[in-house]
Design a protein around this nucleic acid. Structure first.
Lengths: 153, 153
DNA sequence: CTAAAATAGTTGCGTTAACAACTAATGTCA
DNA sequence: TGACATTAGTTGTTAACGCAACTATTTTAG
């Protein structure tokens, strides 16, 4: 203990929020690069298409909730996707404020191309971990995700 | 198996890159909020101060490497910190391109305030996990971090 | 010794993100 | 019914990010 007392210095490289952020950014940027180079899609645009692949006909608001992407970003990304005819939009009959979004045929084609690529990438990543570690990671992310929201300070 | 074959649909909420990104963003934004409200510092600014607290006198370039923050962002953040007199800069004698950065007294005071706060936040987060899970997480992040760089596709 | 390559840091610029203000439609309740 | 609140989506503004071009030094090679 010739050094500083142990909470007077912060070692960034051992600090969980920092390490998570570096790891997540690295992974995201690899994925983002592929989407951008091969399909000219941003992560945001892809995530919108991804939820539409799962939940056809949902509204922009529901997309925003499912993707956790702010609604103004959704709005602008949806505009772009509409311009490129990758998605389609109609107005709900019961509620004229509400839009109903879905993948166009072209959108479905791209979706069908990206999904296996994405899953393969995830698999490659997970293959560096043992089966057990994969489950642990799953569990740990769930726990942290559940509680992080309530944390203050 | 009445549904689609298992890699024709991607469930975002189970997709590792997505889950990591959501978790990391949530954690970062809580931390960022505290830094911003209490000290008017962005995450980038704080990270620069954090490495200067650990490594006094290093250059902007070394800060960039250690924080993984792009050098143009470092340059602009350093300018702000200099204006606020939270850090100091001198030119290296041996190499006049090189700057030597360090925390000012005021910077050290703020540093001394933030470090325990940050560590307490990390502790609170980790306390939701068992001792074992904490070690597992450590290990898993290391493994993924090590290999993620080399991944393609 | 000098021309070319490399390095440290700054600046310009286009893209993306976050927040708030706004419009239009719907819901609520006296 | 009719004012008021709420909700869906759009738009404006500002800041953050990331790449590349640029300046000024230093290093390398012929």
């Amino acid at each position: 203990m010739s050094e500083q007392s142990k909470d007077s210095v912060l070692q960034l490289e051992n600090y969980l929020p920092y390490r998570l952020s570096i790891l997540s950014n690295k992974i995201s940027s690899i994925v983002a690069d592929v989407y951008k180079v091969k399909f000219a899609l941003s992560i945001t645009e892809w995530r919108i298409m991804a939820v539409l692949g799962e939940y056809d006909g949902i509204s922009a608001d529901e997309v925003s909730i499912k993707t956790q992407i702010e609604k103004s970003l959704i709005s602008r990304a949806v505009s772009k996707l509409l311009k490129r005819h990758l998605i389609e939009r109609s107005i709900s009959d019961e509620d004229k404020r509400r839009s109903e979004l879905s993948l166009s045929e072209m959108g479905q084609d791209i979706y069908a191309e990206i999904v296996p690529l994405s899953l393969m990438f995830e698999r490659k990543l997970l293959d560096y971990l043992s089966e057990e570690q994969q489950h642990q990671l799953d569990e740990i992310i769930d726990v942290l995700q559940e509680h992080a929201s309530k944390l203050r300070l």
